[in-house]
Amino acid sequence: MKQLITLIVSAIAIAGCGSGSSEGGADDQLTVGFSQVGSESGWRTSFTQAVQAEARDRGIDLKFSDAQQKQENQIRAVRSFIAQGVDAIVIAPVVETGWKPVLTEAKRAGIPVVIVDRNMALEDDSLYLTRVASDFVEEGRKAGRWLMEETGGDCDIVELQGTVGATAAIDRMTGFNEVIANYPDAEIVMTQTADFTRARGKEIMETFLRAMDPADICAVWAHNDEMALGAVIAMKEAGIDPGDDILVVSVDAVPDIFKAMADGDTNATVELSPHMGGPAFDAIEAHLRGESVEKLISVNGDLFTQETAAEEYQKRTAG
């Protein structure tokens, strides 16, 4: 198994080399290695595509490596990037810990590293150039503000939490609760984790609807779109009209939620921006020009509602 992975990774690396040299000649072309977590969700896939598109637009030679949710694959990919002498490395880490040795190797080789999306636990911040990340707390706030405006601050909310302990779940909850704390008539009446999945979202929502009178629920607040889509199915089966009888607000802005919004089944979503490639490449280019770079760059997504949903769905499924 390990040997197979090594083989695949080195094959990718060699293939990368090949395409790089065949394009050859352009010495001033920037070569960037990108180690991605995997392709475990629709959002992750759009993230990868956004980074690749951004690199294409800028004429950057992007060497892409899919780690299939395994840190060892990422470390191997980073080592192979170093061996190839890339100009910079972008890592979307699988986990937070265990990065010090390989980043030290990159530092010795003089290759700047940009961390995107999830965080790395590093005491020494000279090991990386900068971190580009979404502000999960702000996403929660945006969802909360929209809901409070929509309901005039009077709303009994049921919450579908993300996986227990996940940064995205904790921070989105913090941001949302911060906003509704200002409204005495707004309250979270039931809350439970649905593990960021559609199936669990449906199951938990079913139980909520059984446990209390659906007429008393004003809105569903889901930490991601998948759970919201599951809750929509549960409400429809119980003869409730989601989006009208019970409002639905979530985060991520995956293509499926735009379809649901266009159909009037959910009301709003906050985009978890997949466009982290741009700021990352900006930072790398600035660094190579000798400019200094901030250690944390926040990326903020917009809130989308039913009004633009149909249009956005077409835009997002066409590309």
């Binding site: 475990e40 969700s41 199936a199 199915i233």
Partner: peptide, 14 residues
Amino acid sequence: VATADIQGADANNV
């Protein structure tokens, strides 16, 4: 049953 339940095949989580 699980796939029909959410009218979708979620290979990562089902």
